[in-house]
Amino acid sequence: MSPQGTTNVVKVNRPNVDFADKKVLCSAICKCKDAPGIGKDGRSLKQSCVSNRLRELDKLLQHRSPYKPEVNYDMTKQPPEPIMDSSIATKAHDWLPGWISKHWEQDHGSPYLKGAGMVRRPDTVIVLDPTKPPVQENIKQVVEIKFPPDQMGELQEAAYKRIAGDDSKLVEMGPEDCDCNQPEPDPAKIPVEELGFAATIASIIYMVLTKRPPPSPAPAF
């Protein structure tokens, strides 16, 4: 905290996001930057828009997308544990208050304290194996998406590094990383044959986000 009691803003040193992951995330970021939707209170819902689009992708892939939006993590565990659906290990639990009411005191032996940082929810977790839950050993990167003027603070950064298990796995992204004002790249210049499964995901999310067929046929799963 600063002497005035405000939270100091920390800019995360960003490791590279690989080509296919960046294409997927930037597709959502750019679409939501331009058409985010507006909440009942008049606020722009850019981050919610990104999460909803990635959630739609995960549902389309039967919850086996590498891109897991807004997974809640139990920060009282070491390492932090993802709170997942009881019947689908790769699907984030839909309703955190219900899970807390049903499980917290029974599992922890003490009440849940709202606002104490016991649960944290990064914007997106990229997993190594989409057939497995986003536990720490399966995390490729934790991505926090910020639209200006929002930035990441110290407590948020520290929590997400704990979730990732490695400081270099935390990435902050925004429209400035995506060239949102640039046209889509020429598909003929994209080395999709080198991307494998990730290229398939990028192609599918292109369809989800733009509501039209991909530039080239996506390989079958």
Rank of each mutant, 00 (worst) to 15 (best):
K102N: 14
N181G: 05
Q136D: 00
S216V: 03
A164W: 06
V143R: 10
A220E: 13
A188N: 00
Q182N: 01
T200E: 11
P79Y: 07
A92R: 12
R121H: 11
R120W: 13
K102G: 14
G117H: 14
K146N: 00
E157Q: 03
M118C: 13
M152Q: 04
M84N: 11
K77H: 08
P185Y: 01
P69E: 15
P134E: 00
E81K: 08
D21H: 07
C49W: 06
V10Q: 14
K146R: 04
A198L: 10
D179K: 09
D34R: 07
R55Q: 07
R14K: 13
K59F: 01
T76P: 08
P130K: 02
E81A: 13
V208K: 09
G115R: 13
P185T: 01
S65P: 12
E184R: 02
M152C: 02
V10F: 15
D150C: 04
D186Y: 00
K102L: 14
P217H: 06
N8Y: 15
E144C: 01
K40Q: 02
G5W: 15
L96C: 13
S168H: 09
I38N: 05
M173D: 08
A35W: 04
T7R: 15
G115K: 14
I190K: 05
K68Y: 15
K91T: 04
I204C: 07
M84C: 12
S203E: 06
D179H: 07
P149I: 01
D41C: 02
Y160R: 05
D34Q: 07
V125A: 08
M152F: 03
R120F: 13
K22N: 05
S110Q: 11
E70G: 15
E194W: 11
Q62N: 10
D34M: 05
P3W: 04
V9N: 00
K33A: 05
K23I: 02
S110Y: 10
V171L: 09
F147I: 00
S216P: 02
E144D: 06
E70C: 15
I29H: 02
P97T: 11
A89K: 08
Q151C: 03
G39E: 04
Q141Y: 06
R120S: 12
G196N: 12
D94W: 13
P185N: 00
L57A: 04
I126V: 06
E193C: 06
I88H: 06
I88D: 02
C49S: 03
K33C: 02
C178E: 04
L57M: 03
E154T: 02
M75L: 13
Q141P: 03
D166K: 03
T200F: 12
R64A: 13
H103L: 12
P3E: 00
V192L: 10
